[in-house]
Design a protein around this nucleic acid. Structure first.
Length: 441
RNA sequence: GUGGCUGUAGCUCAGUUGGCAGAGCACCGGGUUGUGGUCCCGGUUGUCGUGGGUUCAAUUCCCAUCAGUCACCCCA
């Protein structure tokens, strides 16, 4: 058999990297639960029509089918199943399906894999993990929930050994109201153009605005002036008003974003910045939108984004407006792994390796291991009764900090980092707290 | 999905104007009949990403493909 090769866009980490990932996921989950979000997992597949309900990205959906499927009777078109490519759409479907069993407002977190058939590159994958929180309510959703999202994310990301993050905020109503206020008729096209400001610069954006959104020179100039507003606090509102455009939706959006900025400033100064060029998905966000930059990794784009949606879930006359945000865990890890910026103190969970004196006495070593494990110390027994030097080396190669030597005259445990060796009893000895589990840094 | 660049040992990379495939690090064994890391000696790294073509001969030239990466597209 020829050597297997990777599949493009489907990353597989080493055990050490997986330990880091699990640590990161634990911290994120802990923060989500600290804020009272309830856990949820939805199935991996949704009917195709659900997946395509919003957005025009059908080409990126992975469809599933049975190898033995009969083409005459198997589902086609909208009845086909596809792998979900975010967690918000499945969640919206779940809320509609289970509305009768849920208490509203409903806050849930969901940490799962999603799949997108994109062309992969660094920090961009076809199979990846998202850590998502959403809050939905029935009929109306108070705006203060839009202010809560960045606080949760700020706490979650700041609990990790990663560079500082900045959450960039905008409000869709500001853009749409402003565009309407200056007489632009295609806000989506205008947003799409403005979103490229960082990449192609103001002159090209102005051209694009003229071409795709039918903007006059003055309108393009106004759009750029709005997009260039950026402030670490609520003062962005003054800059918007200084542009002299009036529109009810614009005023509403400014007011909402001011409240979000004020809440963020009170909770963690410096976390958020109002950045009126942020566009995000054009298809369904209706209020605040979020993007997140990791210091030093700006060129790779946002590692955490989301926004408010009013129209994603509705059934008959009942609407379920919501707001959500999602951490791109795989992207975050992929970037940091690529830079060698995350490490773990050992390659295995093992804290203690129990040496085997000779093969007849393996049972004695097993007994020591049992005693240590029963008190929560991750322990493995040496694979062979090789010379002690080799058994120590086995531990050293894996980063296992302690080697235990059973002895007729009493046991000894050695810290192989310092070389210090002391008498110990398996029923009593405990490693320092810091050595119990692998340390991520 | 479109286009560019890259692909030699576990890692970092040399190399052949087409003629048996190399170095450092790492790894394994021994020096050191039972306590590693230093030192000394010795050893293995490999379908030269994969498949085809040209050729007496291809790791080298050509085509395709896969993977990585970059730009575009998109980003729920």
């Amino acid at each position: 058999m020829s050597k297997p090769t990777p599949i493009s866009g489907f990353p597989e980490w080493t055990p050490a990297q997986r330990m880091i990932e699990q640590y990161v996921l634990d911290r994120i989950r802990g923060t989500f639960e600290l804020y009272g979000f309830a856990p949820l997992e939805t199935r991996a597949v949704e009917p195709l029509d659900q997946l395509l309900r919003k957005g025009e990205t059908s080409k990126e959906v992975y469809l599933i089918r049975r190898l033995q499927a009969d083409p005459d009777t198997s589902p086609a078109g909208d009845d086909q199943l596809g792998l979900h490519f975010d967690l918000t759409v499945p969640f919206a479907r779940y809320v509609l399906e289970n509305a009768g069993k849920l208490q509203f407002p409903f806050r849930r977190y969901q940490i799962q894999k999603v799949w997108r058939g994109e062309r992969p590159q660094e920090g961009r994958y076809r199979e990846f993990v998202q850590a998502d929180i959403d809050i939905v309510d029935r009929d109306t959703l108070p705006a203060h929930y839009e202010a809560e999202m960045p606080l949760v994310i700020g706490d979650a990301l700041r609990s990790l050994p990663i560079p500082p993050v900045t959450i960039q905020l905008n409000n869709r109503k500001i853009c749409e109201g402003f565009y309407r206020g200056i007489g632009l008729t295609d806000p989506a096209a205008a947003l799409r153009a403005v979103d490229k400001l960082d990449k192609i610069g103001p002159a090209k954006v102005a051209e694009l605005l003229a071409e795709t959104a039918g903007a006059s020179e003055a309108q393009a100039k106004a759009c750029l002036a709005l997009a260039e507003i950026s402030a670490p606090d609520a003062s962005f509102a003054d800059a918007v008003r200084a542009l002299g455009v009036t529109d009810p939706m614009l005023d509403e959006g400014v007011e909402e974003l001011v409240r979000v900025m004020d809440a963020a400033a009170a909770h963690s100064p410096g976390l958020c910045v109002a950045d009126l060029r942020i566009a995000r998905g054009l298809d369904y966000y209706t209020g605040t939108v979020y993007e997140t930059q990791l210091a030093g990794y700006e060129r790779f784009g946002s590692i955490c984004s989301g926004g408010r949606y009013d129209d994603l879930a509705s059934s008959g006359s009942v609407r379920f407006p919501g707001v959500g945000i999602s951490i791109g865990v795989t992207r975050l890890l992929g970037l940091l792994f690529g830079a060698g910026a995350l490490s773990v103190s050992r390659d295995v969970p093992t804290c203690v390796l129990v040496a085997v004196t000779n093969s007849e006495e393996r049972a004695a070593s097993n007994a020591v291991a049992d005693a240590l494990r029963s008190r929560g110390v991750p322990t493995e027994v040496s694979p062979s009764a090789a010379k002690f030097g080799k058994q120590i080396r086995y531990a050293e190669r894996r980063g296992i900090p302690y080697v235990w030597f059973p002895g007729a005259d009493g046991d000894q445990v050695k810290d192989i980092r310092s070389g210090e060796q002391v008498a110990a009893a398996a029923g009593e000895w405990t490693p320092p707290r810091a050595d119990l589990k692998p340390l991520v840094s």
